[in-house]
Each structure stands twice: as C-alpha cells, then as structure tokens.
Design a protein around this nucleic acid. Structure first.
Length: 166
DNA sequence: ACCCCGATCGTA
DNA sequence: ACGATCGGGGTT
C-alpha cells in the first residue's frame, strides 16, 4: 500500500486522528497497526502543548504537517505525535497504541510504544513524508473505533478527542 | 539558575 | 487509586 502523503496530514486534526486508526506505521525495522490516537489542537485547546504559544519544545507543531513531534515526559518516557494542519496551526495527533506484527505484540500507551521502538527526541522533527525509514502506509484494514475523553490530562477532558480501535 | 510538574506506567 | 521518577521546559 501507498505511503501517506502530505495532504493526508494537512487536514483537520480530528479527521487525521480518526483516519490514522488502522494505518501502518513503519520505523526502522518495526511495523505496527495504529490502534489508538488523540488529537491536540491549537491555542484554544488547553491540553495542547502549544496552548500558550510557541516554545523550543513545541516548535515543530507550528510547522508543516507530516513531521514527527517527539517529546520527553515524566523524567522517563517519550511520546510520538504527527503534526497536522496548515503551517502556523500548532496541532498534532498523539500515537497511543500500536499492534506490532513481528512479534505479535500490543503496545498500549504512548510511553511503552516509544520505549519499544527506541524512539527519543532524536526522532523529533522528522518528515514522515520523505524519510526513508520512518513513514506511515495506507492499509485496507477495516477498523471500527470509539471516541472517549483524552487520557492523563487535567484540562480539556470535556472533549472526546481520543480514538481507540474496538 | 532553578523550581515544579507532567499528553505515563506499574502495582495495589 | 496512587506513588515513583527526574529531566528539562518555562519562567525567574
């Protein structure tokens, strides 16, 4: 199946978050189906890292869609996001779950996911549309998902911006 | 320079 | 439900 193009990511973040469920993430030797995502959208979303403007950490969120945003959290974990929307709109989709192919393994949780893939801030700001060993492919997987509030945040819990394959 | 807290995880 | 964990982002 075809690699996802810039236009796939340069769309409303909620659409991208939903559409990413069932797609296949490739990173170096790893391959897994995306099973869980969350949307973080701009300055009106209090849970978004960019809610209070641009900083060195969140700068990639303001850039072109399709780039990785990997940050460090809780002194021990990393989280992987894919930047969405037009340049200047700080938004991204957090990848929270991956069903790995070989070995068969469910990575449920953004921290566990990055730990398994050995992903750190060195993988921040990579263009998934151009990179040779980091990209997302389309798939025929028929996926049903549900919407829930986002996990692990104290603000913005009123929004149903988490999407999980059922 | 430094303080505070987090888009988590594992165990209870 | 809660505590471990601690780097570093954001503010001084």
């Amino acid at each position: 199946m075809k690699r996802l193009s810039r236009s796939f990511f340069q769309e409303p973040t909620l659409d991208v978050a939903k559409n990413l469920i069932g797609k296949v993430l490739h990173y170096k030797g790893f391959e897994g189906i995306i099973t869980e995502t969350e949307a973080y959208i701009g300055q009106d979303d209090p849970a978004c890292h960019a809610a209070r403007g641009k900083t060195p950490r969140n700068a990639v969120m303001f850039g072109p869609a399709g780039f990785s945003y990997v940050y460090f959290i809780y002194g021990m974990y990393h989280c992987l996001n894919i930047v969405t929307e037009d340049i200047g709109v700080p938004a991204a989709v957090l990848i929270r779950g991956l069903k790995m192919k070989t070995p068969q393994l469910l990575l449920d949780g953004p921290g566990k996911l990055c730990r398994h893939l050995q992903m750190t801030r060195e993988q921040n700001d990579i263009d998934l549309v151009e990179s040779k060993d980091f990209y997302i492919k389309d798939s025929d997987h028929k996926v049903v998902f549900k919407e829930t509030p986002r996990i692990g945040i104290k603000v913005g819990i009123d929004k149903l911006w988490r999407f999980v394959a059922v």
